[in-house]
Structure formats: structure tokens, C-alpha cells
Amino acid sequence: MNKREFGGQVLLNVVFIILCALIIVPFLLLLAVSITAESDITKYGYQLIPHNIDFSAYQYIFKSPKMILDAYKITATFSFTRMFFSVLLMSMIAYPLTKREFKGKSIISFYLYFTMLFNGGLVPTYILITQYLHLKNSFWVYIFPGLISPWYVFMIRTFFQGLPYEISEAALIDGADEYQIFTRIILPLSKPVLATVALFMFLSSWNDWNTSMLYITEDHLYSLQYLLQRIMENIKLLQEIQQQGIILSGAEDIPSETMRMAMAVVVAGPALIVFPFFQKYFVKGLTVGSVKG
């Protein structure tokens, strides 16, 4: 590497360090505000470097953590359930679409594809779910709608098509039936694509707030993100959360500004630590690319 190239590399790294700072600093700001003393906020505003570090916002949250624990429990439960069933069901439709014997393949493909082009829209879906399926304020509203995403079905099918045909052919000759081939050969061989799809489904469930906003009015069924949204809309909710546990001397004791941000940290933190570990699967999902009918 000559001197000029070296200089170029240094410059490039500086550019990336600045870009990464632009990503990281906003998160740090949330964290910094959450550990600032409430009195400093009214004096200096939100600061990246707190004058006085004070964990009382977290103390308040963890004194009566029922609401946030409920939201974590609900969100984790429906995210894992939905991830499992959506991957299973999408594989169940993707597999027949790769088989010659499956008549009407192109009709079924179009049947799925058409839902990507056209949809009934918000109101008909809302009326269906609330008036006909009666899923309002039900845990199941998190699970059933959107289990089958045509995009991922085609992605899984493309992967299945790439598997060596000889293996399932040999199994067929040895007397295996399609159920056995599907569960014992196709699914185990397709772990990479299934993991990718599973993670995408999990991420979208974990970050879901729309469902709660539309269909949930009982606060013990709120998803994590929706609870956070409600706290942003209504700081009083924070006080209600507190009063569930203990009797406070007065509402003004609650460090509401810092607690708001502390809630954001409690919600975002674990995801921020866990998701990057699975980054390579997300990236793979993007470059699989050849999703075609």
C-alpha cells in the first residue's frame, strides 16, 4: 500500500466513524437522558453527558414492573408462536409448489401473488376481524392475520427448488411418503432459508404496535411497542403504572421526563443487544433475491 492509498483508507475510516456515530449517538442520547437527574432536565434540557447521574427513573420502573413485564411476556409469546407457525405453514404451501404432481401450481401461485398486488384495505380487514371473527381484545389477533406472506413463500419455494432432486426421489423409491420427505428431508436441508424467514417474522412481530393499536383496548394485552407508544402519548399512564404497585406521596415525585426515556431504553435495549447477532441471516435474506413466480 503506498502512501496515498494509506491516506485514502484513513480518510475512509474517518467517514465511517462519523457515520457510525450518527447511528450510535441517538441511542446514547436516550440512555443519557434516562440516567439524568430530573432536576437537571428542567435546568439544562436533555444532554448527552448528564451533569448528575441518577438512576431513580429505573428504580421507579422496577419497583412495580408488572405492566412492562406483562408486555414483554405477551410480546415474546406471540412473537415466538407466530414465528414458528408462519415458517411451518409457509413451508407447507411452498413445498407442493415445487412438485410436478401438484396440479394447479400456477393457479395457487397466482392466488398468492395476487394478494401482494391488491388488498381489501384497512376497513374491511378491521370489520372482518372485529365483527365476524371476534378477535378484538383476544391474544389470537396477534397470531392469525398475516401468517402467510407470499413474498416469503416464494423465497422458501425458490430454495426448495434448489435442493438436489435426487434425495427426495431416492426416499420416494425407498417407500417414504410426502409427509416424511417434507419433514425429514426438505425441512432439515432448508435450515438457512427457514432461519432467515423466521428472523424476519420474529422482528416484525417484536416491533408490532399496529395490531394493539387497532384491536386491543385492555392494557394487560398491550404489545411492548404499543405500551411504549401509549407512554409517549400519555405520560399519565406512567403514573398509573406506578400506582398499581405502591401508594405514592404525590404524583409530582415521579421523574416523568427521565422515566419516559428509561422506558424506551428498557424496551429497545434487549433488542439492540440481541438482534445484531443474527445480522448475517437478515443480510442473506436480502441477497437471496431470486424470488420469482
Binding site: 457510525c20 442520547l29 416491533n207 411497542q225 407508544q229 409517549m232 445484531p276 445480522q279
Partner: peptide, 17 residues
Amino acid sequence: TILITPHFMSWVIVAYI
């Protein structure tokens, strides 16, 4: 890895930021 991180956050978190 750092540049992709925001992709994992919900819009609710972004709204807080």
C-alpha cells in the same frame, strides 16, 4: 453491523429518539 442496527428498531423507538 452498526449501520444496520436501526433497522431492528421499531418506529416507536425512532419516534422517542
